[in-house]
Design a protein around this nucleic acid. Structure first.
Length: 591
DNA sequence: GCCGTTTTCGGCCCGACTGTTTTCAGTCG
């Protein structure tokens, strides 16, 4: 069972409890939802966590759910879950994926119409709604019948929040809306918030906060956005629209003197907010997007800094707000204790990009870059870098003899040396992105490797290996003295495929011991290492590099997204090798 | 069912909006 399937199962248990008796089981419902979130959020497999007795370390998983999951992995089912789900038709669960349908409505519908087939239940509901039969069911009406049809249609198209965007795409979309919203004369300040501000790797919907003294005017202006498909909801202070490209945009307003509270509230994450509100409660305060109520008086905050300070903690960078320990660190920081919050790496700390594909005619095994080395060096200088690492793919092994490969690389080395000697550009580093063959060997021989300063190594083939063999393959490749960086280490492609299996503890140990670095690849649908693994690498003391993997000039601007991943993983400047000045960097490269 | 800078027992975030209703339930973030 995958983590996703296990998380789904826990959500279904929560839904079943909701249907059975929401009041009686209200805390179990919260607990099961939280446990489901925790399992969705971890990169490690549940069966491994059980084997290593670390499952209860996940926040939200205690002795009870732990033992249920052990039973699940061992026998394939859980007695307690069967009991909770008894008497509830299987057809309820597929409907939960349709927006506006929750456990209660789904249950009412499938029992009223006696729907039995989970595989066709969405089609069945659609058909019944089209026939106008839902409007007659108690607690439903004409409007909710229409809403259900709408929701099913949009669900099928993957609209709204049913599919997620990769971060850079969401960034561009938000930029266009930001320009529109700022044109409203009633908008004093406009900020994109939510998971976009936290720079999460994928984004569901885009959230905006607006500071205004005239919320009605701002809301009316917002829902008149030209690319709007329809208004999802519209109230006096908030509204949601669906764009014609299927994306949902949420907007909230507050007066300028309470804007800090709104920024905090709408940035989230949900779990960060819940923790913060619980903490406030324990101090006799109540926190909401309006401010903090204390002894009957509501305190308003213009800025987030003032709000966090009022709670007795240091301001927390949005990238850290996932309730994974940042609140405790912010409290310690404010009290002058160590460790406090990490001093996170910033874009301006980056001194070079080491994963660059130029159009140098290297006759590669994979895709080639579009622009010349010279053009890319000029761009790198504009970005404020001191050095640039050329790392085209190795020449195709099947189409060349090793002698031909050597000739190509020797010529390329001369070219790069020429660029450096001309002194017209920032420093070039002579690297290469080498395929790791299925047997763990590098794609080119010793003589050719001698023509490089160092190399990056990557898995580009034979993904379907078991964890043990894949780990050995990677470590064998990294054992070569010239191999310094493991590229896009999990191999995942967001919204496309999961990565291959790798024993990251073993990889961390090896990298730490032999001074190798793991890449944080900033390519939009890679963002690999993922933030959770960055955090573990930081803890292990493993060095990382942040690269764009650019195949064209414009892609070199993606560095900020790689930096965001590093920040979400609590990385400081000291954890990232390409923050080093040139001389220290080349020293590391030959270490 | 989970969890601890008051606690291993006794708490558990806070609010917006909609539809179907005459005061609230359900869903969402």
């Amino acid at each position: 069972m995958t983590n996703r399937e296990i998380a789904k199962l826990l959500q279904h248990v929560a839904a079943a409890y909701t249907i059975k008796n929401e009041q009686k089981y209200r805390f179990q419902i919260i607990a099961y939802q939280k446990a489901a979130d925790a399992i969705m959020g971890t990169t490690e497999e549940i069966k491994d966590l059980i084997k290593e007795k670390r499952l209860e370390k996940l926040p939200g998983i205690g002795p009870s759910i732990r033992s249920h999951l052990e039973e699940l992995i061992k026998t394939g089912k859980v007695k307690r879950f069967e009991w909770v789900k008894s008497g509830i038709p299987q057809t309820v669960y597929p409907l939960l994926d349709v927006p506006t349908l929750g456990p209660k409505k789904a249950f009412k519908l499938v029992t009223h119409f006696d729907l039995k087939n989970p595989k066709t239940v969405i089609d069945d509901i659609e058909k019944i709604a089209t026939q106008g039969k839902i409007a007659n069911v108690e607690d439903f009406g004409e409007k909710s019948q229409e809403d259900i049809l709408q929701a099913i249609a949009e669900f099928r198209q993957g609209s709204g929040k049913t599919t997620r965007m990769v971060l850079p795409f969401a960034g561009e979309l938000a930029e266009r809306l930001l320009i529109y919203l700022k044109r409203s004369k009633d908008a004093v300040d406009v900020q994109p918030l939510g998971s976009l501000r936290r720079m999460k790797d994928t984004i569901g919907d885009i959230d905006f906060a607006v500071a205004t003294t005239n919320p009605k005017a701002v809301i009316d202006y917002f829902v008149a956005y030209p690319q709007k498909e329809r208004i999802i909801e519209k109230g006096p202070n908030t509204a949601s629209i669906l764009l014609s490209n299927g994306r949902q945009i949420d907007l909230m307003t507050q007066p300028p003197d309470a804007f800090g509270s709104l920024l905090q509230h709408f940035t989230g994450s949900k779990n960060h907010n819940i923790h913060l509100r619980n903490f406030a409660l324990s101090k006799g305060m109540s926190l909401s997007e309006y401010g903090i109520k204390k002894l009957g008086k509501t305190h308003k905050f213009k800025t987030e800094e003032e709000l966090y300070k009022f709670l007795g903690m240091e301001w927390i960078a949005p990238e850290l707000r996932e309730d994974t320990g940042e609140i405790e660190l912010a409290l310690r920081q404010a009290q002058g204790k160590h460790p406090g919050l990490p001093r996170l790496i910033e874009l301006k700390d980056i001194k070079g990009d080491l994963h660059i594909h130029s159009n140098y005619p290297i006759e590669p095994s994979h895709d080639m870059g579009k622009d010349t080395m010279e053009e890319m060096l000029k761009k790198a200088k504009n970005l404020g870098f001191e050095y640039l690492g050329f790392s085209e793919h190795n020449p195709s092994v099947s189409k060349h003899t090793s002698k031909q490969i050597y000739t190509i690389l020797a010529r390329r080395k001369e070219k790069i040396e020429g660029l450096n000697e001309s002194k017209k550009y920032i420093r070039s580093v002579n690297l290469l992105e080498l395929d790791i063959l299925a047997n763990g060997n590098l794609a080119i021989d010793e003589k050719s490797l001698g023509e490089l300063d160092a190399c990056l190594v990557s898995i580009h083939s034979s993904f379907n290996m078991n964890k043990k063999d894949m780990t050995k393959r990677v470590l064998d490749a990294l054992a070569h003295p010239k191999a310094k960086i493991l590229c896009h280490p999990t191999g995942r492609m967001l919204n496309e495929r999961q990565g291959y299996e790798l024993n990251f503890e073993a990889v961390f140990d090896f990298c730490k011991k032999h001074n190798k670095a793991l890449e944080i690849n900033a390519w939009p649908n890679r963002l690999d290492l993922p933030d959770t693994l960055v955090r573990q690498a930081v803890k292990y003391g493993v060095k990382m590099v942040i690269n764009t993997d650019s195949h064209a000039l414009w892609q070199m601007d993606m560095m900020k997204y790689g930096v965001a991943v590093a920040r979400r993983g609590f990385a400081t400047k000291g954890d990232i090798v390409n923050t080093l000045p040139y001389n220290e960097f080349v020293q590391w490269l030959s270490s």
